[in-house]
């Protein structure tokens, strides 16, 4: 049963609250998932340590081509940020597609990652952007790629009773780079995705320098379509190559059947369509053409 709700003013204070809780204290930011999980007994906590008032953590910054999002940055902040729309549009679109505006006003992007749901929209986009999480614990600070944060469905490698993700950072996209987000959804708001795909491409002379293609929910966390990425690396920008990549992405996906959000077979059949659409859109944004 929840005994206390603390609002620290510094990361150090937050860490010390966690330490004082001896495993019963837990980090919270927006709390849109956590509070419901606590209410229905899916998770347990004696003390919640709210990070959202710590100065600096509400900001989105650009420094040396590196975009940094603080732990208190909400989905709506990201969706509406001119900086993100221009230099990481995939994330703006992904963040815009979560829940409803009220949820986006409350739920944080970092929370979306730490909560480790397989189809977490922002996390899928962040993996495509090659984002890295800044993790602080009593033993110090470390940087872990978002891609490596998943330990299973709904399970993060992070321990929210002792570790804090203070920021997430990723390189701003350059002029020759483009990104796109595709989401198969049953309605336009208040719906988890049946499928979501985030891609980032880097072009030179209408060739793919590289591509990052991330898809979900086709595994425990966001899944890189590495085979598809390999097909595109160094390849001409062409519909044929894109189709091949899309097919390769499908071969690497392992979705489950959901009684609520589509069978495995259906998801597998539509996945390449989304990959293709995302790649086509990303190419256009990177100044290429098919």
């Amino acid at each position: 049963m929840l005994q206390d709700y603390l609002i620290p003013e510094t990361v150090e204070q937050a860490l010390s609250h966690l330490q004082g809780g001896k495993g019963r204290a837990r980090v919270v930011a927006g709390g849109t998932d956590l509070l419901l999980d606590l209410a229905n007994g899916k998770k347990e906590a004696g003390v919640l340590v709210d990070l959202t008032r710590i100065p600096g953590l509400q900001e989105i910054t650009l420094e040396d081509d590196l975009i940094r999002l603080g732990a208190a940055v909400t989905h709506n902040q990201v969706a509406k940020s001119k900086l993100i729309q221009e230099k990481a549009s995939v994330l703006a679109r992904a963040a815009r597609s979560v829940g409803s505006l009220q949820i986006r006003n409350t739920a944080t992007v970092v929370g979306n990652v730490v909560n480790a749901q397989p189809a977490a929209d922002a996390a899928v986009a962040l993996v495509a952007l090659g984002a890295v999480a800044e993790v602080v614990s009593p033993s110090g600070k470390e940087y872990i790629p978002v891609e490596k944060l998943y330990a299973g469905v709904g399970k993060s490698v992070l321990d929210s009773t002792s570790q804090i993700v203070t920021r997430i950072q990723f390189p701003a996209l350059l002029k020759n780079q483009g990104s796109a987000y595709e989401r198969l959804e049953q309605r336009k708001a208040l719906a988890l995705p049946m499928l979501n795909v985030a891609v980032v491409v880097s072009l030179a002379d209408n060739r793919f320098q590289w591509a990052r293609i991330v898809m979900a929910p086709v595994g425990p966390g966001p899944v890189r379509a590495t085979e598809a990425e390999a097909i595109l690396t160094g390849a001409d920008v062409s519909l044929g190559n894109i189709e091949n990549a899309a097919a390769a992405a499908r071969a690497q996906a392992n979705p489950r059947s959901s009684a609520l959000r589509g069978s495995r077979e259906y998801r597998l059949e539509v996945l390449p369509v989304l990959v293709r659409r995302a790649l086509e859109a990303a190419v256009v944004r990177a100044g290429g053409n098919c």
């Binding site: 709700y5 919270v28 709390g31 509070l35 505006l101 409350t106």
Partner: peptide
């Protein structure tokens, strides 16, 4: 705007 039923 926030949904106050899930805000502690």
């Amino acid at each position: 705007a926030v949904t106050s039923c899930i805000i502690p």
